[in-house]
Simulated scan of single mutants.
Amino acid sequence: FTTSRGSTASDIRETPRDERATTIKVDHLVKTFPLIKGALLKRRVGSVYAVDDISFDVRAGETLSIVGESGSGKSTTLLEIMAMSHDTVGEIELDGKRLKTLSRAQRRAERRNIQMVFQDPMGALDPRFTVYDIIAEPLHTLGFPRDGIEARVNELMNLVGLDPAHIDRFPGAFSGGQRQRIGIARALATNPKVLALDEPVSALDVSIQAGVINLLAELQAKLELSYLLVAHDLSVVRHISDRVAVLYLGAIVEIGDVDAVFDESRHPYTQALLSAIPIPDPTVERSRSRVVLKGDLPSPTDNEPGCRFASRCPLFQTLPEQDRARCLHETPALHGGEGVDHLVACHFR
């Protein structure tokens, strides 16, 4: 077992993004759910487009955060990646390997390279297992040598800031922050290259969140981990992310460097999300203007051409009739300046 990939933390952070290895790549991912009608004679009457043709990549030592309203497809994206299914619509590559082309045994072996940390630490940990059993379970499942597992569990407890003497305790004996650290230790057990983080601090007290966020940053620097983070708290996203993808009804409407997206947001939906972030200065908070979205939320079962955000878009209301017709009938593609890590899906931005 090892907790280092051979480079110092500064090596990976100072290397230009284009020169880093791609740990995970998603191309044209689509996930639909059947819309069923009928009590006795059930029939499919449509589809819910939870994830609609999204593409992105994550490089070594990098954090990509996926943000958006509830129901925008953030967690579904993570679950589709973790499923490693042959039936996935689109392509997912993990460490250069196309997951759809792998055999069952190869997918099982490749699963060690991507692990998940869940939102609710208590719900993610089996209360009947001791901490040792929880952390050791993925090692047993993947066939690691038994004689090295106990040493690995102790190493992981130290790594996440917990006392190895407590490995015989049950999850109920720990606080929420400590339980999330146990979940992180379990995710790190197989020495993965990618961690999928599904709202890892949202269930924790504010006073505990900073410790877990700092731990994730330290682990990323030490182990050269890539993070794929789903979060609602945009302050946390700004602090921990290198890049941000903004999802609306299953589609990416803006993606790029975290500073570019936060400081120079171009899509009206992104601007509305960012305007909701509270500012700690009461004077500034009272005087600033917010973008309030009005209009009807489109149905996720509608997959007709056009901009899905048009019905709520403040910019749309100011456009002449000809430009409005383009929004309603032509789906905007992601575009941006050449050489600039900032893309937006809007006809007029």
Results as ranks from 00 to 15, higher is better:
306 G>P: 02
314 P>C: 01
249 L>Q: 13
293 L>C: 06
261 V>D: 00
261 V>R: 02
298 P>L: 12
300 P>I: 02
251 A>Q: 14
292 V>D: 11
307 C>L: 10
300 P>K: 03
254 E>Y: 06
250 G>A: 12
277 I>V: 15
299 S>Y: 12
282 P>H: 02
280 P>A: 08
312 R>T: 00
263 D>W: 04
308 R>T: 00
275 S>W: 05
289 S>N: 14
295 G>T: 00
313 C>K: 01
315 L>E: 09
290 R>F: 06
262 F>N: 05
297 L>W: 09
274 L>H: 07
284 V>C: 02
272 A>H: 07
293 L>Y: 08
260 A>L: 14
260 A>G: 09
313 C>D: 00
246 V>F: 10
304 E>K: 15
285 E>I: 00
287 S>K: 13
257 D>E: 13
301 T>D: 07
262 F>P: 09
245 A>Q: 11
271 Q>P: 02
252 I>M: 14
274 L>T: 02
291 V>M: 10
315 L>H: 07
303 N>I: 01
282 P>W: 02
261 V>C: 07
280 P>L: 10
309 F>H: 04
265 S>C: 01
277 I>R: 07
261 V>H: 05
253 V>H: 05
257 D>C: 12
282 P>C: 03
303 N>Y: 08
255 I>W: 05
262 F>S: 03
295 G>I: 07
272 A>K: 08
280 P>Q: 08
258 V>K: 14
305 P>G: 09
251 A>G: 10
282 P>I: 05
288 R>T: 06
253 V>M: 13
263 D>Q: 15
295 G>H: 11
264 E>G: 06
274 L>I: 08
312 R>D: 02
250 G>R: 08
291 V>C: 10
276 A>I: 08
